[in-house]
Simulated assay, not measured.
Amino acid sequence: MNPTLLVVAKAPVPGLAKTRIGQVTGHARAAEIAAAALLDTLATASATGWPVVVAMTGQLDQAARRDEIAAALAHTRVVPQRGEGFGERLANAHLDADAGLGVVQVGMDSPQVTVEDYAQAAAALRRGSTVLGPASDGGWWLLGVQRGSDAAPLPRVEMSRADTAEQTIAALGGEVDLLRTLTDIDTWADVLAVAAELPGSHLARSVQEVAA
Rank of each mutant, 00 (worst) to 15 (best):
T183E: 15
G200T: 02
L198W: 09
T187K: 00
A193F: 00
L198M: 11
L172S: 08
V191Q: 03
E175K: 15
S201V: 14
T187N: 00
D184A: 10
G200D: 05
I185D: 06
V191I: 09
L198Y: 13
T181F: 02
V191Y: 03
A195E: 10
V191D: 08
G200P: 02
I185H: 06
D190H: 13
L178F: 00
H202A: 12
T187R: 08
H202R: 03
A193M: 11
I185C: 12
L198D: 06
T183M: 12
E175Y: 10
G173Q: 03
D177T: 12
D177R: 05
I185K: 12
A195D: 11
L172N: 11
G200I: 05
T183C: 10
D190M: 01
L178M: 02
G173M: 01
D184L: 12
D186T: 14
L179N: 04
D177E: 15
A193C: 06
L198A: 03
V191W: 11
P199K: 09
A189M: 09
E197C: 09
H202K: 02
P199E: 10
P199F: 11
D190F: 04
L198P: 09
D190R: 04
L172I: 03
T181H: 07
G173N: 13
I185T: 13
I185G: 07
L179Y: 13
A196Q: 08
R180T: 12
L182R: 15
A195L: 07
E175M: 08
D186Q: 14
D177L: 07
T187L: 11
D177I: 02
A189K: 10
R180Y: 10
L172P: 08
V191L: 12
D184W: 08
D177P: 06
L172M: 06
L179M: 08
R180D: 14
T181V: 12
S201D: 14
E197V: 04
E197K: 05
P199T: 03
